[in-house]
Write a protein that binds this DNA or RNA. Structure first.
Lengths: 94, 94
DNA sequence: TGCTAACGTCAGTCCGTGTTGATATCAGTG
DNA sequence: CACTGATATCAACACGGACTGACGTTAGCA
């Protein structure tokens, strides 16, 4: 959740959703410096959002759908409980 | 998405999912200063994540489930496309 | 075996933004 | 009407984290 808060990282995630890419492609697509991307990719990797596949001197990055599904599900659950408390008008007295 | 990246804001959202609360309660629950919470609540309000209901000199904050559902759905869609590209082994050549 | 291109790491800078204190406002309450 | 408590706004401040430049490493290729 926290790691998806950064705009550039969300951009990376969107791009990787459609294609498996390597760093060079991401540099070309986003216009960001290679070093900067490498940092963000490290964050995404350590968060389990993406996984790498070394291919010669290239490194392909692929999205892990489970990670996105997990946050999506937890947000959906929050929305469901919120809907329930709204329907029950469950409020704490002051 | 961006607004949900902050830990304190996610905390607020979690609390509001279960109960409709006013600022005082949130101060007690989170331990954060009133001013700080007011700022975060403003951000959430302007993002359409929460809505307010003035009640005398109190202000109740309630979660808007549609907002959470929206981000949840968009993440789920990203996950779906990612799964499809993974299955098709859709990668860009270097 | 030199050369280049791809990628990661490190240390430092810089900026956005979360945090705070002071202040204003408004609603109850005595 | 004076007073207190709830909340929002404003103007700094501080700090984490995004961004950068320099460098090291590895893999292909001539």
């Amino acid at each position: 959740m926290r790691v998806l808060g950064d705009p550039l990282r969300m951009r990376i995630v969107s791009l990787l959703a459609r294609e498996t890419l390597c760093t060079t492609h991401l540099v070309a697509e986003t216009g960001a410096r290679q070093t900067n991307l490498s940092n963000h990719l490290k964050v995404l990797r350590e968060a389990g959002v993406v996984e790498t596949e070394p291919c010669g001197r290239f490194t392909y990055y692929r999205l892990r759908p489970e990670a996105l599904d997990a946050v999506s599900a937890s947000l959906a659950e929050l929305a469901a409980t919120a809907r329930a408390t709204g329907a029950a008008d469950n409020r704490r007295a002051c």
